[in-house]
Nucleic acid binder design. Sequence first.
DNA 1: GTCCGGGAGC
DNA 2: GCTCCCGGAC
Length: 311
Amino acid sequence: MTERDDAVSLGEAHDLEAVRDALVEWYEADHRDFPWRQTDDPYAILVSEVMSQQTQLGRVVEAWEEFLERWPTTAALAATDRADVVGFWTDHSLGYNNRAKYLHESAQQVESEYDGSFPESPEELQELMGVGPYTANAVASFAFNNGDAVVDTNVKRVCYRSFSVPDDDAAFETAANDLMPDGRSRVWNNAIMELGGVACTQTPRCDEVGCPWREWCDAYASGDFTAPDVPTQPSFEGSRRQFRGRVIGTLREYDELEVDPLGHRIRVDYAPDGEYGREWLTGLLSDLEDDGLVTLERGGSPAETVARLQR
DNA sequence: GTCCGGGAGC
DNA sequence: GCTCCCGGAC
């Protein structure tokens, strides 16, 4: 037993069927329709995965379409000169040329070792050059509905916040696989990555996008939205101005809010008694009050102060 | 010689 | 995120 024996499995703490159904329903009702979500061609999916590893999704769409137009199959790609592929990579600002080299080489592998048709298991897919555990799972899932849970930073963030999974790679993998419904890796991995991509973002948008896990989510309950990949200190200057803006934005959504819940929605590293806590926020709110933007209702204790937008 | 973890570089 | 390289263990 390599697992921590004091860890409570997700299945014991939650109705997993309900949790799974809620996410899949949410995903199927509405999601971003990237072109690679409309194919099950493993080659096209591999190309999208390799491109996505280093480039913003928006930019990838155009490059992906052009790449597949030029080299529609592994056979076409394998037959071309490596220099052409690297050239394409550079022309489209796709980052490290190594990936182009790996893609070219993996196409040749599929042609020579697999007779032109992709293997379907994550284990075999990993034999391809440039394809590690992550990409193998993604291709197996999206092309063949035959993968395990994909664990990227989005998925980690979701698990960490929703179910308080400890910041530990093995724990994330176990949790992600416990959550995934058997035999549904295609829709599931799309759905949980979509959740991390549009709802459970670094600054969370739970209510704005109607996160389907709010009723089970530890972070939503506590207001603590810290996560492994979220910087504890804001990286850029002028943060006070930034936070004034967030206060206003948040108060437009909630009629009124007490200081602590407000603080947690303003900055992920908010802690009532911390450096950027209640004292800091109260100062910020007082300034906004002086500027005629916010109304404060002082309660019995500092924590009971309620803020609303001045009408 | 082979397997594994860590760190560097793309 | 993946490969490559190195050092240590066996």
